[in-house]
Design a protein around this nucleic acid. Structure first.
Lengths: 156, 156
DNA sequence: CATTGTGAGTTCCCTCAGGGAACCCCAAAT
DNA sequence: ATTTGGGGTTCCCTGAGGGAACTCACAATG
């Protein structure tokens, strides 16, 4: 719906929302991430309208997050994550972490992550790329970068 | 448009989207995070309709992400992040990281983060809570957790 | 050959959410 | 008494999402 164009704002959050901010887009991405690569699979899993799914897949392909590959002589396609798309999954993983902690309730988290490197169940943790210490909202100061908007303050 | 209710899905992504998935919500959160705590400030900064801003602030308060505080004898309020809300900012920080890398272009990132712990400009990095090694989409296997849905596989 | 099946969309109508602008309420300040 | 300003409401209009039916290209089947 998003009539306002977020992509033009000098803010990486708004720009990212321009790519996956529309309703259903993150869930479409999730499905493809976990191996549901075909139109009807995703449609059935999410219960999304076919019209909207068509629109979302097109949008994600257009933005280079997905690629559409033919897998048959017939007109059959599957959608796969690009490198850009796989890195976008980072955002989903952090959403899962937050949802698990604050919204899962009694039942506990719906899924668990087994980390290849250590073989254990783990959660994702945010750390500073420079020093490796935890990095959260209160651990940083936000300051203008090279691509900051000229006058009206905006927050990246 | 009679949105499908994401909050009822057995998926922490969908549940998180139920809280901040609506258009504008992440940008409202961002504004409050960087210190724009008042209705008219946010409205002017984002160019959002006042009606929608009212609705979004109410929704975020209702879900415990924001608190509404009177700051005057007059009916004046400011919105502040709760602990739950501050942790939600993690999601925004990762969105910023992705947007900076893939969408910022020539101009470079609109904002920079200075990390209190080390004093340096840093980005946020995802690591395994168990072993501390990098943790991204390809570094994990997803498996059902205690709160998984009974039959239809869901990923989240 | 005609029929059936299937994945991947299109098309159509209906309702409801977002945009925009005007309006309202309350408590200072003048 | 009137103005100002923050914090919303109310109104109408447009357009996006839901849902279901329809289409299209090809393969397999009888």
């Amino acid at each position: 719906m998003q009539r306002t164009n977020f992509g033009d704002m000098a803010c990486s959050i708004a720009r990212t929302l321009d790519v996956i901010g529309e309703p259903w887009s993150p869930l479409v991405l999730r499905d493809i991430w976990v191996g549901m690569n075909r139109f009807d699979q995703i449609q059935a899993d999410l219960g999304i309208s076919r019209k909207v799914l068509t629109e979302r897949l097109g949008h994600l392909v257009e933005h280079g997050v997905l690629e559409k590959h033919a897998y048959d002589n017939r007109p059959r396609y599957e959608y796969v994550l690009t490198e850009k798309g796989r890195e976008l999954v980072d955002v989903l993983m952090v959403m899962v972490g937050w949802g698990d902690k604050w919204l899962a309730g009694e039942a506990g988290p719906p899924v668990l992550y087994r980390h290849h490197a250590c073989g254990e169940i783990g959660r994702v943790d945010l750390r500073c790329s420079h020093c490796g210490e935890p990095m959260h909202a209160d651990d940083i100061d936000v300051q203008p970068g090279p691509g900051a908007a000229p006058e009206p303050a905006s927050a990246g």
